[in-house]
Design a protein around this nucleic acid. Structure first.
Lengths: 199, 199
DNA sequence: GCAAGAAATGAATGATGGTTCAATTCTTCT
DNA sequence: AGAAGAATTGAACCATCATTCATTTCTTGC
C-alpha cells in the first residue's frame, strides 16, 4: 500500500465539510433556501459541485445538517439568555426577547428557518427546530408549575402554542421588514398571560 | 363571423373551470400539495392537461384560487360559529373549537393549508389565509376590549399570535394523526388567558 | 522519483413536471 | 351542409437542478 490518508488530509476534509455547511448557512441567510442550489453552495465554499457529494450523500442530508446547526445556534442563544434568570416569568421574557430580537436581526435566516418552503426532507428538520424550542420552553413552564408560580397545564401543548405564537408574530414583520414599536413587549405580555403568570 | 360563443358554452367553460378547482382541492385534501401535479388535477377534472391553461395562466394562479377557495371555506365556518355567540370569551371558544375541530377532521387539507411546503407564489396565499383568520379574530378581540371584557392590547399582534398558536398546536397532531384527549380544551384556556379573559 | 491509491473536478446525465402548440373536435351562423 | 372560428387535446418541449462518473490532480510511502 502506498497511500493511507493522514491526519493533515483528514483535517482538510473536515475543514472542507465545514466550509460547505457554512457556505450553505450563508446563502440561506442572504438569499433563502431558494438560492441554495448545490452548485451555488459549492461555489461559495470554493469546491466543485461534485465534491459536495463526498461529504453528504444527498442535498437533503446537507441541509438537514445546515438546519440543525443554525437551529441549534438559535436554541442555544435562547437557552443562555433564559439561564440568567430565575423566575419562570423572567425566563419567559428572556425567551421572547431573545427569539424575537435575533429573528429581527437576521430576518432572511429566520424566515428560512421558520417558514420558507423547503423540500419535505428538510421540512422535517424545521419541525425539529420548532420542537427544540418548545421542549426548552416546556422545561421552564414545568418548573414554574412545580414551584406554584404558574397554574397547572399541559406543558407540552402550551409550549408548542407559545412557539407558534412567537413564529407567527415574527413572520409578518420579517416579510414587511419592520416590527411595530412594541411588538416584543406585546408578545411578552401575551405569553405571560397565556401561561398564567400572575400580574 | 360564423361563431360567437354562446351562453351554453360559457356555462360549460365556467363549469369546467370549477371542476378543475374542485379537483385540485380534492387532491390537496387527499394527497397534499405534493400530489397536485397539473396532469393529476386535469385527469381528475376530466380534462386534458393543456386545458388547464385555458383557465389559468400558470399553475401558481390555479393554486392561488384553490387556496383562496379552501381558506375562505374555513374562515367562513369559523366566522359562522363565532357569530352564534355573544361574549368575546364564547366567540373565542367557538373559534378554537371550530378551527381545531375542522383541522382534525380533514388533517391532510389542514396541513396543506397551514404548513406544507408549496411554491413561493402559493405561499403568499397561505399568508393571506392566516391573515384572514387573524383579522376575524382581531374583530372579536377589539369588541371585547371596547366592552371592557378584555384588557387593552394590540389586537393586530395578539390575534396574529393566536393564529400562530392554533396552527402550531395543530401541526403536531395532524402529522401524528391524533390529538391529545383535551387538546382543544387546553388550547381554549391558553387563548382565553393570553387575551385576558377574566377567569 | 514513482507507483498506488485517494480526493477533487465539472461537464454530462437524468428525472421531474410545468408549459406549449400543431392537430383535432366541437359550435355557431348562414 | 359548410365555412369560420373557438375549444380541446396530449404528446413533445424545455428549464431546472440534483446527481453521477470518467478524468485529472494531489498525497503518501518506498
Amino acid at each position: 500500500m502506498a497511500y493511507r490518508s493522514t491526519e493533515r488530509v483528514k483535517a482538510r476534509l473536515t475543514a472542507s465539510r465545514e466550509r460547505i455547511v457554512a457556505a450553505a448557512v450563508g446563502i440561506l441567510a442572504e438569499h433563502g433556501y431558494a438560492g441554495c442550489s448545490v452548485a451555488a453552495v459549492a461555489e461559495r465554499a470554493g469546491v466543485a459541485t461534485g465534491s459536495v457529494y463526498r461529504h453528504f450523500p444527498a442535498k437533503a442530508d446537507l441541509f438537514a445538517e445546515v438546519f440543525r446547526t443554525a437551529s441549534q445556534r438559535e436554541v442555544d442563544a435562547v437557552s443562555r439568555a433564559a439561564a440568567r434568570e430565575t423566575t419562570a416569568a423572567a425566563k419567559l421574557r428572556a425567551v421572547v426577547e431573545t427569539f424575537s430580537g435575533r429573528a429581527l436581526q437576521s430576518p432572511r435566516l429566520a424566515y428560512a428557518l421558520l417558514a420558507e418552503p423547503v423540500d419535505p426532507a428538510v421540512e422535517a428538520q424545521r419541525l425539529i427546530f420548532r420542537r427544540a424550542h418548545a421542549t426548552l420552553i416546556a422545561g421552564y413552564v414545568a418548573a414554574g408549575v412545580a414551584s406554584g408560580e404558574l397554574p397547572p397545564q399541559d406543558t407540552e401543548l402550551t409550549s408548542t402554542a407559545v412557539v407558534g405564537a412567537l413564529a407567527e408574530a415574527m413572520v409578518g414583520p420579517l416579510a414587511a421588514g419592520v416590527a411595530g414599536p412594541d411588538t416584543i413587549g406585546g408578545l411578552t405580555t401575551f405569553i405571560h398571560r397565556a401561561l398564567g403568570v400572575s400580574p
